[in-house]
Design a binder for these strands. Structure first.
Lengths: 171, 171
DNA sequence: CGCTACTTTCAGAAACTTGTGAAGTTAAGG
DNA sequence: CCTTAACTTCACAAGTTTCTGAAAGTAGCG
């Protein structure tokens, strides 16, 4: 793949680890603040900051100074959320984890599942408190809002794909 | 408005506390799942399920079976997030907390502050890793995505206001 | 078919969060 | 001004989460 000491190697391995780490920890902190667990956040940020967009379990463990177990847990979570995909390097038992540059933010917007559950809870609320009560009406309106958002987000993502293609070409 | 004992009154005072509580806890659980703290979630859900859209500190404590301290903390958080507003009942030292039926979901969409911080972190990343590196390009694209989303969300909320007015009249 | 390089699972220690009671603060009303 | 209702702050206990090391599982390759 690559030889020790060549430029690509420097970029991948060296690349001012200081700066990389600073970004990784800073961005991860923002994700944590937004409600994501710490370790998945750090792993995700590390992948985002990697040149190839993919790292092995060992590389992640080393870079973040955590155990293989922690990497394993974080990666399981991220792939359940469709924020990374896993691939096996052919002819090795090493696994690589990858951010697909378009896949991941679609996943982030994909609060769709979350919205659906909110909608369902609200709908129950309207029924059990009564559609003709003030509280019921408030909840019905809220429900309508989320339904509206659902549709709008789908349309927005469609527009983004077009916008993106114009600006960046297909990733 | 209404007489004691009539149906609406029953709805406001009694209102099958069982059903209310079930909704409150269920909806709060969904909010928790989405990353919000437990107590703010419960307080918020309780307000949402109240007929008047507002409750006092004491009412919240009683309904949720928690201490005044817990209510105080939750309410501080919610008002920082602009998800509830506080008002003082004139001629009393009681405070009321209120969901404004349109205000609150605007606040929920108002991940704007969150997005801005992500954008700022990404922008730092592009700079420190180099706009001409693969990682830098990936981050620049991500940044572009968030900027796109910012604008789109503003437009979406504008459309919602129109849609809502048509369907519900001004709240 | 077994060795070995990797990954996953699991029990438990450490760190963090969360809610409480109690003391402290503020301001309404006499 | 003093009293007192109401809210807030704080130190701490209880509960949860998170990460680790160790053991178990899996699959390439000889």
């Amino acid at each position: 793949m690559r030889q020790p000491g060549d430029q690509a190697d420097q970029a991948a391995a060296g690349r001012d680890p200081e700066a990389v780490s600073k970004f990784v920890e800073g961005f991860a902190a923002q994700l944590v603040e937004a409600g994501m667990q710490r370790m998945p956040s750090r792993v995700f940020a590390a992948l985002l900051a990697s040149d190839s967009g993919s790292l092995t379990s060992a590389e992640l463990g080393e870079q973040l100074r955590v155990s293989p177990a922690a990497v394993s847990g974080a990666v399981r979570y991220l792939s359940q959320q469709h924020m990374v995909s896993r691939e096996r390097e052919p002819g090795s038992r090493r696994e690589r984890y990858r951010v697909h540059s378009n896949q991941w933010y679609e996943a982030l917007t994909n609060r769709e599942a979350v919205l659906k559950r909110w909608e369902s809870a609200l709908s129950d609320g309207v029924t059990s408190l009564g559609a003709d009560t003030p509280a019921g009406r408030r909840m019905a309106e809220t429900l309508a809002f989320f339904e509206f958002v659902d549709e709008e987000i789908a349309a927005m993502m469609e527009r983004w794909r077009v916008h993106r293609e114009e600006r960046f070409g297909q990733g």
